[in-house]
Design a protein around this nucleic acid. Sequence first.
DNA 1: AGAAAGTTTTAACGGTCGTTCTAATTGGGG
DNA 2: CCCCAATTAGAACGACCGTTAAAACTTTCT
Lengths: 199, 199
Amino acid sequence: MRNVAEPRRRRAATEEKLTRLLDVTEEIILREGYASVSSRSVASRAGIQAPLVHYYFPTIDELFVAVLRRRAEPNVVKMAAAMASPEPLRAWWQLASDPRGTALLLELIAAANHRPALKAEVGKVAREIRQMQMDTLTSILGEYGLDPDVFPPALIATAMQGVAFALVADEAAGHDTKHEQARAAMERLMASLEQRRVQ
Amino acid sequence: MRNVAEPRRRRAATEEKLTRLLDVTEEIILREGYASVSSRSVASRAGIQAPLVHYYFPTIDELFVAVLRRRAEPNVVKMAAAMASPEPLRAWWQLASDPRGTALLLELIAAANHRPALKAEVGKVAREIRQMQMDTLTSILGEYGLDPDVFPPALIATAMQGVAFALVADEAAGHDTKHEQARAAMERLMASLEQRRVQ
DNA sequence: AGAAAGTTTTAACGGTCGTTCTAATTGGGG
DNA sequence: CCCCAATTAGAACGACCGTTAAAACTTTCT
C-alpha cells in the first residue's frame, strides 16, 4: 500500500523538467523581456510541446511565480547569512550586485504590473527580505558611526537596492553612463565602512 | 502656390489627437504595464479605430519612442535648471521623486529589452542627462564638503536615480516596506546637504 | 464648385497567444 | 508481465496582435 500522505509518485524525469522549464523561462526573461514568455516560447526552447508547460504550470502566472520563488528562497537564506556575517554591509552589497538577479527582479516587478498573483508574491518577498535587513541595521548601525536620524535603516536599505537597480538599468540601456566608476566607488565605500566599524 | 518647404498642411485636430494618443499610452503603461500597449488598446481608449494609430505612429515602436521623447525633452530642460539652481541637489531630488515619471521610465527600460529602437532612445536620453549631472557635480561637489574619492559624481548620480527607482518599485509592490521613512530621510538629507554647503 | 490633400473607417491578412480536450504513450509497483 | 497512474503529443477553440490595402469622409485651397 502506498503512503496516503503522498498520493502521487513523481517520475524522475519530472523533477529535472521542472527545473529546466524554470531555467528556460529565466533565460527568456533576461534576453528578451518578460513579455516574450509564453507557453509556446518556453516549450520550444525546452524541446517540448506547449500544452506540457501547462501540465507543470497550469497558468503562466504560476510559471512566473515559480521563477520568482526559486530565486527568492535561496536569497532569503543568503541575505540572512550576510546580515550575520562579520561584514554585513559588504556582504549585502555583494548579494545586491548580482546582475542576473537584479535584472530578473526588475523584469518581474514590471511584469507584476498586470499579473496580480505575481504582484502579491513580489510584495511578500520584498517585505520579508526588507524586514530582515531593517532588523539587523537597527542593531548594528551605531557600530558604523552612522547617525540613525540622518541614515535610518529604511534609507540605507532603499539605497542599497536602488543603486543596484540603477547600475543594472544603466548597463542595459547604453554603455556610457560611467557605471564602472559608480560600481567601484560603491565597493570602496562598503570596504571603508567595514573598516571604520567598531564592535 | 504653396510653400515648397512645407508640402503638408496639418489639420488642427491632428495635433490634439497626437497628444491624446501619447496621453492614453502613458496611462496604459502606468496602469497595466507596457505589455498592454497595442494599437487596439490605445485606439479603444482614445475612441478611434486601430489603424488610425498607425496613421500617426506607423509602428508601435515609434509610439513608445514618442512617449519617451515627450517626457524626456522637458526633463532635460528641467534638469538643466535644477543643476543651475541655488540648491542643485535638492532640486534634482525633487525632479527624481516624481513617481509617474520614474514608474514610466522603469517600464520603458523593461520594454526596451526587446525593442531595439526604444533601447537606443533610452540610452541616448540617459547619456545626455547623466553627462549634464556629472559635469555639474564635478564642479560643485567640493562645496558640499564631499570627498570626490569617496563620493564621485558617478556614484552620486547613480544613487539619486537608484533611490528613486527603489522607492517607486517598493510602492508598487506592496505597501509595507517603510518607503515613507526612506523618502522622508532622503528629503532631510538633501536639505541638510544644501544647508552645510559653502559657496 | 471642384480638386487635392489630409483624415478616418472597414475589412482582412497571417501570426501568436492561453488554454482545454482527447487520445496516445510511458514507466514503475504489484 | 500487466495495470494504473503519470506524462506527453496532437488538434483545436476563441481572442488578440501588428500591419496593410482600399475606400469613404472631411477640410482647405483655388
